[in-house]
Simulated assay, not measured.
Amino acid sequence: MGGMSAVIDNPAGTFSVPIIDISPYTGGGSASDRAVVAAQIDDAASSVGFIQIVGHEIPIAVIDEFTAVMDDFFELPLEAKKAYRTPPEINRGYAPPKSESLSLSLGVEPADRMNDFFEAYNVGVEATAYPELELPEDQYASNTWPAVDHFEAAVSAYFAEASRVAHTLTRIFAEALDLPPDFFDGYTDHSLDVLRMNNYALPPGEIELDGELTGMGEHTDYGIVTVLWADQVRGLQVLDREGTWHDVAPADGALLINLGDLMARWTNERWMSTLHRVKPPIVDGTIERRRSAAFFHDGNIDATISTLPSCVGAGSRYSPITVGEHIGAKLAGSRAGQSNPYARREAQRVRQAMRRGLGQQ
């Protein structure tokens, strides 16, 4: 299945997100089989920046139980959900609609600042998971678990599976980049990982359908790699190199994978962190429900990310930065409304895309 692609037809041509079977890494394949997968990942990461993977071996029962408790939480009344809010600097708990703006994580000012209409719930790795390390408790914060039956157990089970997949992917990345197999281990052995559960449906009358709604503003992901489970409902859009947005939905049983800014820095943009957004799927004047869950594998907070020697070429486009500095600036943008001073290259790309994309919305 490694040679297949999910193809979406559009007026500007054909855009495809490759489907890659990673079972040679998860199920025990030969060295030659793994090398084929690594080459496919390298090609997709260099050309598209989004990938679909099958052969990830997350049990269907784990996904079903996880999505069921997501539904149970998001079906609670808004005021009940707001009881689980945390301060903007704590990337945990509930985020109600229009309390964030992902485009600010790139330093791009939206017309109506905090205007993303999705709601979300975040959990992540806690400092207590690494008692031998002195990790900052604001970034490795304790989780807030809602009073929903089986929520903590089901979410924790999926979190563990998504983490396994992310670590498998970094092993594949190492081979694809001609690095030692364990290269990324020293950067991710207390990784700042967060699982964000997203809901794109709102009760009737809570929002005006004026054609300018932003489900989730254009952004790149912040860390190393994102493992995304999503409904097969249109809404997610990916920007190609020509500045055209394309609808992307996962194939049956597939997870969507995209690279984050830290991987773009590491590889000096040999691999790109691809711009994407979510537009509200509107059917007959109402928003069709869409759910997703993004596992962000961001790396150790104290790790310094510098361009890989094999990717420097004529010179590095990026100065070294720690994971903590990078993620902190990103979150200050999306959650606290502070424009990101470290995202000049990414912001320039967004603005160019906005200009090219006029009339393509």
Results as ranks from 00 to 15, higher is better:
1 M>R: 12
4 M>S: 12
7 V>K: 07
8 I>T: 13
9 D>W: 03
11 P>L: 14
17 V>Y: 03
20 I>G: 00
21 D>F: 06
23 S>T: 15
29 G>D: 05
30 S>Y: 12
33 D>S: 11
35 A>R: 06
44 A>G: 00
45 A>V: 01
52 Q>K: 04
60 I>H: 15
65 E>A: 13
70 M>D: 12
75 E>Q: 14
78 L>Q: 13
78 L>F: 10
79 E>P: 02
79 E>V: 14
82 K>E: 15
93 G>Q: 04
95 A>N: 13
95 A>M: 13
95 A>Y: 11
96 P>G: 12
97 P>H: 02
101 S>V: 00
103 S>R: 12
113 R>V: 11
117 F>A: 13
117 F>K: 10
118 F>G: 15
120 A>T: 00
120 A>R: 06
121 Y>E: 09
122 N>R: 14
135 L>M: 05
137 E>D: 13
139 Q>N: 08
145 W>V: 05
146 P>C: 10
149 D>M: 03
159 F>N: 05
160 A>E: 07
164 R>Y: 05
164 R>I: 08
169 L>Y: 01
172 I>K: 01
172 I>N: 01
178 D>P: 01
181 P>S: 13
182 D>P: 07
186 G>I: 02
193 D>Y: 00
197 M>Q: 08
201 A>Q: 10
201 A>P: 02
216 M>L: 15
217 G>S: 10
223 G>K: 08
223 G>Y: 04
226 T>R: 00
226 T>D: 04
227 V>Y: 02
229 W>A: 02
235 G>V: 08
235 G>P: 06
239 L>F: 03
239 L>P: 00
245 W>G: 11
246 H>R: 13
246 H>C: 12
247 D>I: 13
249 A>P: 00
252 D>A: 14
253 G>E: 04
259 L>M: 11
261 D>M: 07
266 W>K: 08
267 T>M: 02
268 N>P: 15
268 N>A: 08
273 S>M: 05
275 L>H: 06
277 R>N: 03
278 V>F: 06
281 P>L: 10
282 I>F: 15
283 V>Q: 10
292 S>E: 00
293 A>V: 08
302 D>C: 09
304 T>E: 06
304 T>H: 01
316 S>Y: 09
319 S>I: 07
323 V>I: 11
324 G>V: 10
328 G>K: 10
331 L>P: 06
333 G>R: 02
334 S>Q: 09
335 R>N: 12
338 Q>W: 04
338 Q>Y: 12
344 R>N: 03
348 Q>L: 06
351 R>Y: 07
352 Q>T: 10
353 A>T: 09
353 A>Y: 02
356 R>S: 11
357 G>Y: 03
359 G>E: 01
361 Q>G: 11
